[in-house]
Design a protein around this nucleic acid. Structure first.
Length: 573
RNA sequence: GGUCUCGUAGCUCAGUUGGAUAGAGCAACAGCCUUCUAAGCUGUCGGUCAAGCGUUCGAAUCGCUUCGAGAUCACCA
C-alpha cells in the first residue's frame, strides 16, 4: 500500500477515535511543503466541525494520538492549523529496502485492459515537421506510460496514403520529375515527394488545369488504373522509406499499421444502420446527414450524394472495426486540438448509434507548436523540418561534448552514440516537459538548451552516478543504522518512493510532462546531495555502501522515468 | 456570430482533484574545480497569477463579467 494512503487510514482512525465518525474525504493528507519539517501534512480545517476545538488544539490532539498509536509516526508539529507528521527513519529505511529489492519498481500490476493509442498518422505527400514530432513523442510516451500502469497497449498508426493531396505530388512528379528518384537525387524519399508537392503548388499558379488533372488522377486511382497504381505505390514506397528512417531515429514504433487506402471504404454499413435506426436522415440529393443541433453542434455530412464516404464515415468505421477486432477497452487518439470538433462529433454519433464503447474513446488533444511569428506555414517556408531539427540537435550535442572534452578517449562509435542520445534527449525533453494540452512555443533562432531544466541535465546526472558506480569496487552490501541517515538522504528516499504514484498520475492524465517534472526534481535534489557529501571518499564503509546504493537507485529511477519519455540515458557523457 | 481552449517573473514553462510566504530554468549579476564528471553547485535580482465581482475558514485553481490571444464551425483529411 502506498504510503500516503497508509497515513490517511491512520488519520481517519485517529479522528474516529477522538471525535466519532467522520467522512473520510474530509481527512486530507498531502506532502509537507519544503519549508516546513515533516513528511505528510494533515489539513485540519475541515475537521473543526467534529472536533469542536480550535485548529491548533485539534491538530495537536490528532498528532498526539498518532504518535502514541501509530508506530510509523515519529513526531509532529502544528503550524496554523496544519499538522505536519514525520515518519520514523526506520520506516523510510524499510521502504528503501523494498525499493531496492523490487526490480519492477514503478510498474503496476496488469489490470487486464487493452488500450490502443493511435498516433503519428502522417500524410504521404510531404516529410514530417515539428508538429509531427510533438505528436510522435507524445503518442509514444503516453503508450509507454499506460503500459507501465498495467495496461496491455497497442500502438497504432493510420497512414493517410490516398486522396487528392497525394495525387498532386504524383502528378507533379509525372509531369516535371524527369524520372528523378531518391537514388538518383540522393534525397530522402519523403523529402523528394514533398519537393513535388511544393512543385505542384508552384506550377498551379501558371496552369490552373493541373487541379483538374489531379482530380482525374484520383478518379483513375479509385478505378484501380494500373498505371496510376504503380506510380502511387512507387512514390508511397519512397515516402515510407523516408518515414522509416525518421521513426527509427526518433525511437518510436508501432504494433499496428493501418492504411487509409484500405480503410476509407469502411463505415458505410454504419451509415445504413443509422438510417434504419432513424438516427441519420437522407436528403433529396441522396446524401446522408445527422442533425446534432440539439446537442449544440451542427448538421454533419456522413455520406456524399454519390455514395462515397467522407472523413467522418471512415473514422466511424475504423473505430468500430478496432473495438471489434482488438477487444479494446479504450481507444486514444493523439491528434491536434484543431480537430476537437471532429472527435466531439465522432463520439456523439457513435453514442447515438447505441455503442457503449463510444465513451471509451478519448481524444488526446494536444496544442500546436508555434513559432515566434505564429503558426508554421509551408507557403511562407517557416515549416521546421523534423529531420533537419534532429540533425541540428545531434550536431550541437556533438560539438558541445567536444568542447567540454567529454569524448576524450572514447571510440568514434561511442562518441556518436552519446551525441545522438544527448541531442535527441534535449529535443524530446524540451517538447515533453510541456503539458500536452497547451500550445507551446519553439524559437528556431534560439537553440534548445543543454543546461538547467533540460534532458541533458538529467542525462548528465545519470552519467555521473554511473561513473561513481564504475569506480566503486565490489558489492556494497553493508548498511548503517537508519539513525545516521542524513536529512538529504531521507529526502531522496521519500522522493524515490513517490515514483509509482507519479507514473499512475501521468497515466491518468495522459501527461508525460508529469514524469518530466518529477524526474527533473529528483535529479536536481540528487545533484545538491552529490555536491555536499562524499560517496566513494566516505570513510565509514557502511555509510559509503549505503550512499552507493542510494545513488544507484536514483540512477535507476532516472533511467526508468526517462525511458517512459522515450529518452535514453548514457553511461558517460 | 456560435462552440471550445488559453492568459503565472523580461523569455520558456511548473504549480497533482481549492490549502501555508506562487516555484524552476534561461537571461543578468556575484561566487565555487590540486578531492567521486563544473552539461554541476551556491547566492542576488525579478510577480497586482490579464482585470473586476462572487462562492468560503482559505482561490493561480471553482462561478459570472470584461479585455486580450488562438482553434473550429468543408460534400479536405
Amino acid at each position: 500500500m502506498e504510503i500516503e494512503k497508509q497515513i490517511h487510514a491512520a488519520a481517519v482512525a485517529a479522528v474516529e477515535k477522538l471525535y466519532g465518525g467522520v467522512d473520510a474525504s474530509l481527512v486530507q493528507i498531502q506532502k509537507t511543503r519544503k519549508e516546513f519539517t515533516g513528511d505528510f501534512t494533515l489539513v485540519v480545517f475541515p475537521l473543526l466541525k467534529v472536533s469542536h476545538a480550535s485548529p491548533d488544539v485539534t491538530a495537536t490532539q490528532i498528532g498526539e494520538y498518532l504518535v502514541a498509536n501509530n508506530p510509523e509516526t515519529g513526531s509532529f508539529n502544528v503550524i496554523k492549523g496544519f499538522l505536519n507528521i514525520s515518519l520514523t527513519a526506520e520506516f523510510w529505511a524499510a521502504r528503501f529496502a523494498e525499493i531496492v529489492a523490487d526490480p519492477n519498481f514503478g510498474r503496476a500490476e496488469p489490470i487486464g485492459k487493452t488500450v490502443m493509442v493511435e498516433y503519428s498518422s502522417p500524410n504521404t505527400n510531404k516529410p514530417l515537421h515539428l508538429g509531427h514530432i510533438r505528436n510522435n513523442l507524445l503518442g509514444y510516451s503516453v503508450a509507454e506510460i499506460l503500459r507501465e500502469c498495467g495496461n496491455n497497449v497497442l500502438k497504432a498508426n493510420l497512414v493517410n496514403d490516398r486522396g487528392i493531396h497525394i495525387c498532386k505530388s504524383m502528378l507533379a512528379w509525372q509531369r516535371f520529375g524527369n524520372g528523378e528518384t531518391p537514388a538518383s537525387s540522393g534525397l530522402k524519399g519523403d523529402h523528394l515527394v514533398g519537393k513535388y508537392y511544393v512543385e505542384f503548388n508552384n506550377r498551379l499558379k501558371d496552369d490552373e488545369s493541373l487541379l483538374d488533372q489531379a482530380q482525374e488522377m484520383l478518379r483513375r486511382w479509385e478505378a484501380h488504373d494500373p498505371e496510376i497504381y504503380v506510380l502511387w505505390e512507387t512514390m508511397n514506397g519512397w515516402v515510407y522509406d523516408g518515414f522509416e528512417k525518421t521513426y527509427k531515429r526518433l525511437g518510436v514504433d508501432f504494433d499496428r499499421m493501418y492504411y487509409e487506402s484500405q480503410t476509407y471504404l469502411l463505415g458505410k454499413a454504419l451509415v445504413e444502420e443509422g438510417l434504419e435506426k432513424g438516427v441519420f436522415y437522407r436528403r433529396e440529393d441522396g446524401s446522408v446527414w445527422i442533425d446534432l443541433t440539439a446537442d449544440g453542434l451542427d448538421e454533419k455530412l456522413l455520406l456524399r450524394a454519390d455514395g462515397t464516404s467522407v472523413y467522418m464515415t471512415q473514422d466511424l468505421g475504423t473505430a468500430y472495426r478496432r473495438f471489434e477486432d482488438e477487444k479494446l477497452d479504450a481507444l486514444i487518439y493523439v491528434v491536434g486540438n484543431e480537430q476537437n470538433y471532429h472527435f466531439q462529433v465522432l463520439k456523439l454519433v457513435l453514442k447515438k448509434l447505441g455503442y457503449a464503447w463510444a465513451d471509451a474513446i478519448y481524444h488526446l488533444s494536444y496544442g500546436m507548436v508555434e513559432l515566434p511569428e505564429g503558426k508554421m506555414k509551408s507557403r511562407e517556408g517557416t515549416v521546421v523540418d523534423a529531420d533537419d531539427l534532429i540533425e541540428g540537435m545531434v550536431t550541437e550535442a556533438r560539438e558541445m561534448s567536444q568542447e567540454l572534452g567529454k569524448l576524450d578517449g572514447l571510440s568514434a562509435e561511442e562518441a556518436s552514440e552519446i551525441a545522438e542520445m544527448v541531442g535527441l534527449g534535449a529535443l524530446k525533453y524540451f517538447i515533453l516537459k510541456v503539458d500536452p494540452r497547451k500550445t507551446m512555443l519553439f524559437d528556431p533562432r534560439e537553440s534548445i538548451d543543454f543546461n538547467g531544466n533540460t534532458g541533458p541535465f538529467i542525462q548528465y546526472t545519470h552519467a555521473r552516478i554511473r561513473s561513481v558506480l564504475r569506480k566503486a569496487s565490489g558489492e556494497f552490501v553493508s548498511t548503517p543504522a537508519p539513525e545516521v541517515y542524513l536529512p538529504e538522504e531521507l529526502e531522496l528516499i521519500k522522493t524515490l518512493s513517490e515514483y509509482p504514484q507519479v507514473v499512475l498520475q501521468a497515466g491518468e492524465n495522459f501527461a508525460p510532462s508529469v514524469i518530466a517534472a518529477w524526474v527533473y526534481d529528483l535529479a536536481k535534489m540528487y545533484n545538491g546531495y552529490y555536491h555536499d557529501h562524499p560517496i566513494l571518499r566516505e570513510a565509514d564503509p557502511a555509510v559509503r555502501d549505503f550512499r552507493l546504493r542510494l545513488s544507484e537507485q536514483v540512477a535507476l529511477v532516472i533511467k526508468k522515468g526517462m525511458n517512459l519519455l522515450g529518452i535514453n540515458v548514457p553511461e558517460r557523457m
